[in-house]
Amino acid sequence: MSDIYRLATLEDAERVLHITYEAYVTIRELGLTWPAAHADLALIQDNITHNKCYVLEQDGLIVATVTLADPERVKELTAETGLPFIMWFAVDPNVQGTGAGSKLLNWVEQHIIRDEVGAPAVTLGTAEKHPWLLPMYERRGYESIRARDAGKGEGPMHLMRKVVHPERFEAYLQERKQAEQIQQTSSQGN
Rank of each mutant, 00 (worst) to 15 (best):
M1E: 07
S2L: 13
D3C: 06
I4A: 04
L7H: 04
L7N: 10
T9R: 15
L10K: 06
D12H: 07
L17T: 12
T20H: 09
Y21M: 08
V25T: 08
R28K: 07
R28L: 00
E29L: 03
L30A: 01
L30T: 01
A36N: 08
A37T: 04
A37Y: 02
H38E: 03
H38R: 07
D40C: 02
D40Q: 09
N47C: 03
H50P: 00
H50V: 01
V55P: 06
L56A: 11
Q58I: 13
L61H: 11
I62Q: 01
V63C: 11
V63T: 09
T67A: 01
V74A: 02
A79S: 11
G82S: 08
M87R: 12
F89D: 08
D92E: 12
N94S: 15
T98N: 10
A100I: 01
L104W: 13
H111P: 02
I113G: 04
E116S: 09
V117C: 03
A119G: 04
A119Y: 08
P120L: 02
V122E: 01
T126A: 11
L133M: 13
L133K: 12
P135C: 09
Y137F: 15
R139S: 12
S144Q: 00
R146V: 00
A150S: 03
G151V: 14
G151Y: 05
E154Q: 09
P156L: 10
P156H: 06
P156V: 08
M157E: 06
L159A: 02
V164D: 00
P166N: 06
F169W: 13
R176T: 14
R176E: 14
Q178L: 15
A179F: 03
Q184Y: 04
Q184M: 10
S186V: 09
